[in-house]
Amino acid sequence: MKFACRVNGSYIQADVEPRLLLSDFLRHDLRLTGTHVGCESGVCGACTVIVDGEPVRSCLMFAVQAEGSKVETVESLSPDGELSPLQDAFHRHHGLQCGYCTPGMLMTVTALHRQGCLPTDEDGIREALSGNLCRCTGYQHVVEAVKDFAA
């Protein structure tokens, strides 16, 4: 199927299999490997991207469903190579360990921030990120980074 969308500001036209997942299209066709695939069932949040302003599990969406949409991946956060304020907060607060889940967390926080509903309290931040699983950390540094960013 042919489809077209904007990915990180660039207009993309593609001819793909109808069953190709958005996560696979981003990673394999566009080489945007910051979108990670963990569970492939929408549970872990590693594949989270922003589609038309909403955080979306790209492993649960077909690429052709992005027809006419604006898709943003973690690569869009630092187009000039400089860390975004959110990435800088994660860096300063050591809000990552292996980094596998980090892109999904960054995209979830980015979407919530843009929507004006990013919590600033510890419990609220934990709840907001409850769909982004990490096996390496106890989340405290992530929460501190988001708290700092939200301030």
Results as ranks from 00 to 15, higher is better:
A111L: 13
E82V: 08
D15M: 06
L21S: 07
L86K: 00
V51D: 04
V71A: 07
C5N: 02
K147I: 13
Q13V: 06
A14D: 09
L30C: 09
R126P: 02
P79R: 00
G138F: 05
R114K: 10
L133D: 02
E75P: 08
V43T: 10
V142K: 04
H91W: 14
N8Q: 12
R31D: 12
C101A: 08
S41G: 10
V71F: 05
H141G: 05
T110D: 10
L133P: 01
R135H: 09
R114P: 09
I50N: 03
G45W: 04
E75H: 05
Y11A: 15
A128Y: 01
D29E: 12
E122W: 03
G38L: 13
T108H: 01
D24A: 13
L86G: 01
G68A: 08
S23C: 12
C39W: 00
T102R: 00
T108E: 10
S41F: 12
V109K: 02
V142C: 12
V51F: 05
T137K: 04
E72I: 07
E72V: 11
K147Q: 08
V71S: 04
C117R: 11
K2D: 15
Y100K: 13
E75N: 03
L26W: 02
S10K: 05
E54S: 04
G38Q: 03
G68I: 12
V56W: 02
R57E: 13
A14F: 08
T120N: 11
G138K: 03
L133S: 05
Q115K: 10
Q87S: 07
G42A: 12
V49Y: 00
D15V: 05
Y139N: 08
F25W: 10
R92K: 12
C117L: 15
Q97K: 02
R135E: 08
H91P: 14
M107C: 11
R27P: 14
H113A: 15
S78K: 04
N132C: 08
E67S: 04
A63M: 10
K2Y: 06
C117M: 15
G116W: 07
Y11W: 14
E82K: 07
G99V: 09
F3Q: 10
P18G: 14
F25D: 11
Y11P: 09
E144Y: 00
Q13C: 13
D24W: 00
L129D: 00
P79S: 09
G68Y: 08
